[in-house]
Design a protein around this nucleic acid. Structure first.
Length: 171
DNA sequence: GATAAGATCATCT
DNA sequence: GATGATCTTATCA
């Protein structure tokens, strides 16, 4: 079944952990693509220097402060997009970055968005949009399959860079 | 196999 | 004017 706002309206780290094993579904025209989520990272709060919201509420981060479950798509390094889902209650900035899904060549957030044709126009879509969403297909994820590590590419964030907020699903 | 550099632009200072 | 929640390609060993 499709995840609703309630799923995302919780601690961002919990949401990230539980997104593992769920299915990312992308609808392009009348074609449906779906893939199991295998790698995520949580970003939460204005104190988390690795989180975009640490800059405060700006036109760009406005989405993160909004209601949970919405999409947050942004451009990094001028050429790649990253796909996130907003977490926690309306007014609290947090999000979960989808780093990888279980499709050939789908590892890495940049490649993921290129393969699924996700770009800037998919930013700030509501939970019940008809383009991209997440489904729970009932598969159980054993804790022994989950690897927890620090987040990638955020060394500049000081102590926040060491937070174990990245979750990887192994086979 | 490993490391280095290049591409490229919205956002913030 | 500087800088990234990245990936690909080139060059070297």
């Amino acid at each position: 079944m499709r995840l609703t706002e309630d799923f995302f309206n919780r601690n961002a780290v919990t949401v990230a952990r539980e997104l593992l094993g769920k299915y990312l579904v992308r609808k392009i025209a009348d074609k449906i693509l779906s893939a199991k989520i295998t790698e995520v990272e949580a970003y939460k709060g204005t104190e988390d220097l690795a989180c975009h919201a640490s800059k405060g509420l700006t036109p760009r981060t406005r989405v993160l402060f909004g209601p949970p479950g919405r999409t947050y798509v942004y451009l990094v390094y001028g050429m790649y997009h990253c796909l996130n889902f907003v977490a926690e209650k309306d007014g609290y900035p947090a999000g979960v970055l989808i780093r990888a899904v279980d499709i050939p060549g789908g590892s890495g957030p940049g490649r993921l968005c290129r393969l699924l044709d996700v770009a800037g126009e998919h930013n700030d879509l509501p939970v019940d949009n008809n383009f991209i969403w997440v489904e729970d297909r009932g598969g159980l994820v054993r804790s022994s399959q989950v690897t927890t590590t620090k987040r990638i590419g955020v060394e500049y964030a000081g102590v926040w860079a060491d937070k174990p907020w990245r979750f990887v699903l192994s086979r």
